[in-house]
Computed example of a mutant assay.
Amino acid sequence: MSFAAQTLTGSKPEQYAQLAGQARALLAGETDRIANAANLAALVYHSLPDLNWTGFYFYDGAELVVGPFQGLPACVRIALDKGVCGAAARTRQTQRVEDVEAFPGHIACDAASRSELVVPLVKDGRLVGVFDLDSPRVGRFDEADQQGLEAIAQIYVDALT
């Protein structure tokens, strides 16, 4: 089965609603976390503008380990006390960073990244990992992006068994 990302139209909330519909269709009936993460990373990366990295880090009980992604090679392991991904995992709260150079302890896996949004993935009270998006543009992510990407992350979590 092939699946092509469709062009998003309308306001930003309308675009995220369309993207969420595509994500639900893409993940429908599939529970494998790796397959779903791979497809979701590709869908989001190719649907949204100004991204240079989109992907998943999975919690192995001690640290975050890179999972499926789109973009340049990434840091393989991230401690929970390091970087934006670690902060999202540790606090279980979405981290939206306007300028990563101003974030204490930012991990520069790709020197071109200037802003970042990381959504924690929590299933039944258990940390699964994080959904991480980087942009080469300062201030790329706003409240509408955060809400839209949190909804996309929840679709992923809901597909987990």
Rank of each mutant, 00 (worst) to 15 (best):
R33L: 00
D32A: 15
L64R: 13
N52S: 06
L26M: 12
V100N: 05
G148D: 04
S115K: 13
A159Y: 11
E98T: 14
G71T: 03
Y45V: 00
A87F: 03
A108H: 11
L117F: 06
K12Y: 00
A151C: 10
E14A: 13
Q18D: 01
D132V: 09
L121E: 10
V66C: 03
I152L: 13
R33V: 02
M1A: 15
Q95M: 07
A153F: 11
T54W: 02
A79I: 01
A17F: 00
D99S: 12
G55K: 07
Y45L: 00
V119C: 15
R77C: 00
D134W: 03
A62M: 04
Q147K: 14
L43C: 04
R114L: 09
T91Y: 02
L64V: 09
E101R: 15
T9Q: 10
V128R: 13
L127Q: 11
G139I: 05
A38R: 15
D81Q: 07
G55T: 07
A4H: 10
P49M: 00
Q18P: 00
V66S: 07
T54E: 04
G55A: 07
G129T: 13
T94L: 02
G61Q: 03
S2K: 14
L117P: 12
Q95W: 05
K123C: 15
W53K: 08
A111E: 12
A151F: 01
Q70W: 02
E116I: 09
V118L: 04
A17N: 01
Q6R: 13
A159I: 11
N36H: 06
Q6H: 09
L117I: 15
A23D: 01
P68Y: 07
D110E: 07
V157E: 13
D60H: 03
L127I: 14
Q6C: 05
A20Y: 00
G10Y: 11
P73D: 08
D99K: 09
F141I: 01
E116D: 12
V130L: 06
E63N: 03
D60C: 07
F56S: 04
R137S: 11
G61C: 03
G83Y: 00
A25P: 08
W53F: 05
L127N: 07
A4D: 09
V119S: 12
I155Q: 13
Q146N: 00
E30G: 11
G10P: 06
P73Y: 05
T91F: 02
V122S: 12
A4L: 09
G148V: 03
D50Q: 15
L19C: 02
R96C: 03
L80T: 14
Q15G: 03
V118T: 13
T54S: 11
L48E: 01
A42L: 02
T31C: 11
